[in-house]
């Protein structure tokens, strides 16, 4: 974290080196597409440059930049939700089978016992690899809602507005996203020979 005082002359070229990668990872995790992520990072820097006078120095430059980027990402979601109406939403609700259960309502895979605690896994780089791969395997329609809700902790009504969907739709989408992610983690980490094991099946899930 760098705490550049607001009074010092901004040097955008150092911003890119100091904060570019962090902002880029933040963006790509949420929007998936690397080109979109690059554009959002650039837009963030431009907005920061133009709005530098509003930076109060209460927080670090990085926190401030991340805040701007968050808005840019939400704007991007909002815009693409308007451009591409989610046609599969109706189908989504009618579906009789899902990630967890078959059409007869039976478990596809009985949930296994997860022995580790989240706190134990926070420091486990190998686990993060699996987690991100599973997150990456979510289709965009599920991933966006999931990211806004679970990663960024937005309220559900805010998310509905951003993605232009109803609350009922959102609940179904989140249920499916969590189901997929659960299944992927169960298969690739908890039930596998884990840690040293391959992360097979993550892409196909």
């Amino acid at each position: 974290m760098s705490d550049t005082p607001a009074s010092s002359k901004p040097d955008p070229s150092t911003w890119v080196d100091e904060h570019g990668d962090v902002l880029f990872r933040f963006a790509v995790l949420r929007v998936k597409d690397t080109h979109v992520a690059e554009d959002l990072v650039q837009e963030t820097f431009i907005a920061a440059l133009e709005g530098l006078a509003t930076f109060r120095g209460g927080s670090s430059i990085r926190t401030w930049l991340v805040g701007i980027l968050k808005h840019k990402i939400v704007d991007y979601f909002r815009k693409s939700a308007r451009e591409v109406p989610s046609t599969d939403l109706a189908a989504l609700e009618e579906e009789t089978e899902d990630e967890l259960f078959n059409r007869w309502g039976q478990w596809r895979h009985l949930p296994s016992k997860w022995r580790e605690t989240p706190d134990n896994l926070l420091e486990n780089k190998e686990f993060w690899g699996v987690f991100l791969r599973c997150l990456d395997a979510l289709p965009n329609s599920l991933r966006r809602a999931f990211a806004l809700r679970e990663i960024d902790g937005l309220k559900t009504d805010e998310i509905c507005k951003i993605l232009s969907i109803t609350a009922t739709n959102l609940w179904v989408i989140l249920h499916r996203a969590r189901g997929k992610l659960r299944d992927c983690l169960d298969t690739n980490w908890f039930r596998e020979g884990r840690s040293r094991g391959e992360t097979r099946g993550a892409d196909a899930s």
Binding site: D21, R25, L121, L122, E123, K125, L132, E150, R178, R182
Partner: peptide, 30 residues
């Protein structure tokens, strides 16, 4: 589900960024 909730929260926390940076899935840098 609680597990996933807790870990996703951690993903949102920029302090975890250095861990996520090692992932080979998410491109680590511009």
């Amino acid at each position: 589900l609680q597990f996933i909730h807790r870990l996703s929260e951690a993903v949102g926390d920029t302090a975890t960024d250095s861990l996520i940076a090692v992932g080979d899935v998410v491109p680590a840098a511009l």
